[in-house]
């Protein structure tokens, strides 16, 4: 028991054992969704309860935890989850990707490369990659059993016929180790290549839907595509306005009512580290930098 009167990391030992058993099976069957007895958490379903339960099951006193939402350590939901674990598990927290042993994330993979020994925990709203095409769980489970993913390909091809593009830009489906079709969670497809053969262990938790799944280190993760329409990621015309990075996912920031806008790194820690290291972008000395709170001098 911690000072809060609740268990270490909130969950009781029995629940943790159940989750831990599910996680070991998830690692043994990469990309397969393991059902688990998801518990009500003190945060609402849809707000990261799956990721929180996975983190609670793996977290120990020596871990260093990083929590991001939309790539940023400072969004309210990330702050709230970090506070939750600081309060119930008294663990060290960080915003430095390289220092973290466990990284819980919603919607992004950090830009800095992950290392062996790190654990990524993804918050997953809808673990079933085919759910939008087939709402019935009984049917999608059979399709996974048969590895029958034909209609997912048909859907993507219909996009090409209709729009000239695959119209899926985030939560873009992947094949794990050539067997299971998997939702990478709603990360932008920009991040999909980072899933492939990552040295980190990647765990996925869907609390409301009561599923966990995993991608072990060095595991093949391929985004679905076609010979004549190979998978490609988003690109921007200009680098990050604050740090000049041309290899990161950029958020569009609306500056005024006159249509003024700029593009800045979505990974706030990556951007800040680059600025500290002396990198600059087109708007580095602009007032917007201070307003955004990303510049080294801001408070």
């Amino acid at each position: 028991m911690s000072a809060t009167g609740y268990n270490f990391a909130y969950l009781d030992p029995q629940t943790k054992r159940m989750l831990r058993r599910a996680l070991l099976k998830a690692v043994a069957i990469p990309g397969y969704q393991v059902p688990f007895g998801s518990r009500e958490m003190p945060l609402p379903y849809g707000w990261g309860t799956g990721g929180i339960q996975v983190t609670a099951a793996v977290l120990g006193r020596d871990d260093v935890l990083k929590v991001i939402d939309q790539g940023s350590d400072d969004t309210v939901n990330a702050v709230n989850i970090r506070r939750f674990f600081a309060r119930t598990a008294d663990v060290a927290t960080t915003d430095r990707t390289a220092e973290a042993t466990v990284i819980q994330t919603r919607h992004r993979i950090p830009e800095a490369p992950l290392a062996e020994g790190q654990i990524m925990v993804y918050q997953v709203p809808q673990p079933e990659p085919m759910r939008r095409l087939e709402p019935r769980e009984a049917v999608t489970r059979t399709l996974h059993a048969l590895a029958d993913y034909g209609f997912m390909h048909v859907k993507l091809y219909e996009d090409i016929a209709r729009y000239g593009h695959i119209a899926t830009t985030y939560d873009y489906p992947v094949m794990v180790n050539g067997r299971y079709l998997m939702s990478p969670s709603p990360i932008p497809k920009f991040d999909n290549p980072k899933l492939n053969r990552s040295p980190a262990l990647q765990l996925f938790g869907a609390g409301r839907e009561k599923r966990v799944y995993a991608v072990p280190p060095y595991t093949r993760v391929e985004s679905l595509d076609f010979d004549d329409h190979p998978f490609s990621v988003q690109r921007w015309d200009a680098p990050c306005a604050l740090c000049g990075a041309d290899d990161s996912f950029l958020d569009e920031v609306v500056l005024d009512d006159a249509g003024g806008r700029m593009f800045v790194c979505s990974d706030s820690e990556y951007c800040t580290s680059r600025q500290h290291a002396g990198h600059t972008g087109p708007a580095s000395n602009n007032m917007a930098s201070a307003r955004l709170g990303r510049g080294p001098a801001s408070s």
Binding site: G46, W47, D69, Q70, G71, T75, N77, R106, H107, R108, T169, Y170, D171, P186, I187, P188, K189, F190, Q234, F249, L250, D251, E252, S266
Partner: peptide, 11 residues
């Protein structure tokens, strides 16, 4: 909750 990464992708 913020969805601006996904929205940016769609945009």
């Amino acid at each position: 909750l913020p969805h601006y990464v996904d929205f940016q992708s769609e945009l």
